[in-house]
Amino acid sequence: MSLYLFLTLAILTIISALAVVFSKNPMYSVLWLIVCFFTIAGHYVLLNAQFLAIVHLIVYAGAIMVLFLFVVMLLNLNADTEPHKSNLSKIASAIAAGLFFVVLIASIRATALGEFNLPNKTNIGFVEEVGKKLFTDFLLPFEISSVLFLSAMIGSVLLAKKEKK
């Protein structure tokens, strides 16, 4: 049952990721990317990372993709304004990515991955476990990331502001 669930989600993920790359209209690309993020959240639920799945939906589908949609609409991008590369460089990019995939798969096959003893506890993704880790072992990075957010906020406001002539 969960094998079929995994296969369905994986195929949906791949198809929507390909649709992001190949759709002519940037608006459709954004919408396909949202579908892709939803399927990745499904994978997280299958992997016992329930809290992370919810956070992923809130942050990516809720915040980042809305930002993308907003910018695409604000700049009024559509299929007519979309710049196109020559066919040669398109084929070259597909071949380059395919070769990189082959190299990565070959290196994965050559690596001796240790066999995991499958864990019998399934609560590693709950808020309690992740929160304990976040506020004890990873407290310093957690606090520093707030500074990162503050600087990103100030930076983006400064960058997007109209310059005075």
Binding site: V21, P26, S29, V71, V72, E82, P83, H84, K85, S93
Partner: peptide
């Protein structure tokens, strides 16, 4: 590598 639109 494929697209030229910076947002994509």
């Amino acid at each position: 590598l494929f697209r030229r639109n910076a947002i994509i």
